[in-house]
């Protein structure tokens, strides 16, 4: 068997490609791969971040199996994810369709305005959200008052806190996801719609049978990224309620944060983080499998 010869040109292309990839690969190795392996190592120890680590085997993993608060935080995270991801997906797609329908100079202006909240940092957005949702002086309660609805507690209520926080996070993220959808919609050849129009398919039918199927890859990307993001949501929750009221918003990442940096159970926090990593990894694989079927 003769070894396959690689031409000088192909070799040059490889060198160029890897040259461009190298900075990112180094970043991934140093800031992602190494911390994951280190978290696994720490998770096998009893460590308070100040004293030397003491090897404890799988004790931390056994402990999490019986930790009611951990499982409660997983349940809250799943609930958050199940509400947030579809809402973000649908609203981003609708906004993109709306933007696509615009013509003339309005289009550019509206697109910029939609994207603008994404430029606001997460902590700032949370602070603004707190102002708007303030039960006494907040603008949302003032608006509700205009239509005869009494003041709502929002972040001070175990039943309203989650939807209130989701509202703030949606406000920040819709614009970015809308732009991704919009660029994918622009890629769809107009011929398809014209041909469908000649066959009598317009409106909902052309959306259902042309737009949606051709957005499959973009949709997969957005669903995976937003699902991962929803499992990692922390900033706004920490700022707006610190996991309250009555732990109603204590999502998994926040619980890990509290275990690590408040209670100084670094080993245990690392084991929780590693388990969460496996959950997110598994969910992403499932989503990829489900949506990658081209048929």
């Amino acid at each position: 068997m003769t070894p396959k010869r690689i031409s000088a040109r192909t070799r040059n292309e490889w060198v160029t490609a890897y040259g461009f990839l190298l900075p990112n690969l180094i970043g991934l190795f140093v800031f992602v791969f190494v911390p994951i392996v280190y978290a696994l190592y720490v998770s096998l120890h009893d460590w308070n971040a100040l004293n030397p680590k003491a090897f404890s085997g799988l004790d931390n993993y056994r402990k999490l199996l019986h930790d009611d608060q951990w499982w409660s935080s997983i349940r809250i995270t799943l609930t958050f994810s199940v509400i947030y991801v579809p809402l973000l997906f649908v609203l981003s797609l609708l906004s993109a369709l709306l933007m696509n329908a615009l013509r003339g100079r309005t289009k550019g202006v509206a697109r910029t305005l939609f994207l603008l909240p994404f430029a606001v940092t997460s902590v700032t957005s949370a602070v603004i959200g707190m102002f708007m949702l303030d039960p006494r002086n907040g603008v949302i309660n003032r608006l509700l008052g205009l239509i005869g609805i009494g003041p709502q507690p929002f972040l001070g209520s175990t039943s309203q806190a989650m939807l209130s926080i989701i509202g703030v996070i949606l406000w920040i993220n819709i614009g970015y996801n809308m732009i991704i959808f919009l660029s994918a919609i622009k890629e769809i050849p107009r011929d398809y719609y014209e041909a469908a129009g000649m066959d009598g398919a317009t409106g909902w039918k052309s959306f259902r049978f042309i737009t949606l199927p051709l957005l499959r890859e973009t949709s997969t990307f957005i669903l995976i990224v937003t699902t991962i993001g929803s499992f990692q949501a922390l900033d706004q929750i920490l700022v707006m309620t610190k996991g309250g009221p009555a732990n109603a918003m204590e999502v998994s990442v926040l619980y890990i944060f509290k275990q690590g940096f408040e209670l100084l159970n670094m080993g245990y926090a690392a084991s929780l983080a590693f388990v969460l990593f496996l959950i997110i990894f598994g969910l992403s694989l499932v989503q990829l499998k489900l949506f990658s079927n081209r048929n």
Binding site: S95, L98, M99, A101, L102, T106, V109, A110, L113, F114, L116, P117, A119, V120, T124, V127, I128, F131, M132, W171, G175
Partner: peptide, 23 residues
């Protein structure tokens, strides 16, 4: 109607984004 709705939504997002300066 679509144009008006889009501008209204965009305006709302801009106004609320601008609230950052009040902090």
């Amino acid at each position: 109607a679509i144009k008006a709705l889009a501008l209204l939504l965009a305006g709302f997002m801009l106004v609320t984004a601008g609230c950052g300066s009040a902090v």
